[in-house]
Design a binder for these strands. Structure first.
Lengths: 186, 186
DNA sequence: GTCTATAGCAGGATAGAC
DNA sequence: GTCTATCCTGCTATAGAC
């Protein structure tokens, strides 16, 4: 942790830029300039752009894994607050999109490897949301119509959309959307 | 109507392609091939790509205007069913995205003219949704927490996200999301 | 209004020296 | 592991003939 490798820097910076402007608009030179190396050096770590794209998705997915390990120690309502807060942080950080939202919105035009990586990641989130809702129903903390799985679907759609529409319509729109989600389960 | 001008064909085909693969991935040649002309001929109608982009957004916005003129003759609940059905049609037609969703997700990387056109369009939809929800509350047909404006924000986020996440997770996810919306107002 | 031809640029990717 | 140099491709856009 004392010194971060260039490989890690590349992934981290790429992730941030992709969340801001999307996979297609992001390019090697933007990263190279920020680190202070040439773009050919990035090809040393990631021969093709899609290799870097996969690394970004897996890095984000891995971070999410670490997060839920801690979140799962708390009550279902606290867990949902944690993920709402995570999205609030994305919004506050220059209105960036979540990884599944930015890759999902360009899904029809990314290499198959990237599609697969996004699919795996999103199913993990869906699974975690479903379990959280199920736990909340069992404990009596949550009350809503439909199945936990259906509520997880609705949350995924709304979370991804909240950042995109919030970028256009501003903070009020974004926060009204998150409030709607929170109210939909209690 | 007997014969559609090439200009109209260009806008219509561009709109469909943009909804499927996004503004950046769409290019003049794809349209040219479909119509059977050369891409330089498209520049005759739309000198720059962003001119065509603006035309596409305004065309979609104009169609929406025509639709709500008819929808507004019906009850609030019927009106909301009409827009849910519109999104179901998008999904059925090769899982394409709505115009505000596809331009919104690439908002940070499109010319200012396009940003403005999307903003105008989305505010029109937000306005119509707000009025519909207000009418439904007044008539007693709808019952929900929060303001009509906040519910409109939530709907916009969720509708845009439903198509994107539905593309990844399939028809069940998509329909669960639409059901969630319908249940949130009654 | 459509064509051919071509300019011009950006970005992904590779070869080979250090 | 990073560099310079270069290739290649795809796409936007323009000039000018028909």
């Amino acid at each position: 942790m004392a010194t971060e490798s260039n490989r890690d820097k590349i992934i981290e910076l790429s992730r941030d830029i992709i969340q801001h402007i999307g996979y297609h608009s992001f390019n090697y030179k933007q990263i190279a300039v920020l680190i202070g190396i040439k773009n050919s050096s990035i090809h040393h770590y990631f021969p093709a752009k899609e290799d870097l794209g996969v690394a970004v998705i897996e890095s984000d997915s891995s971070d999410f894994n670490d997060k839920i390990k801690n979140w799962n120690l708390e009550s279902p309502l606290k867990r949902t607050d944690y993920i709402l807060d995570l999205y609030q942080q994305y919004f506050n950080d220059g209105m960036k999109l979540c990884i599944i939202g930015t890759f999902g919105s360009s899904y029809e035009d990314i290499p198959e490897k990237l599609q697969t990586a996004v699919n795996v990641y999103i199913e993990k989130i869906a699974q975690w949301l479903s379990e959280t809702f199920k736990d909340g129903l069992a404990s009596g903390e949550f009350r809503f119509k439909g199945t936990p799985e259906a509520m997880a679907s609705a949350w995924l759609s709304t979370l991804a959309g909240s950042l995109q529409m919030g970028r256009l319509r501003g903070a009020v729109h974004f926060e009204e959307t998150l409030d709607h989600l929170r109210n939909s389960i209690i």
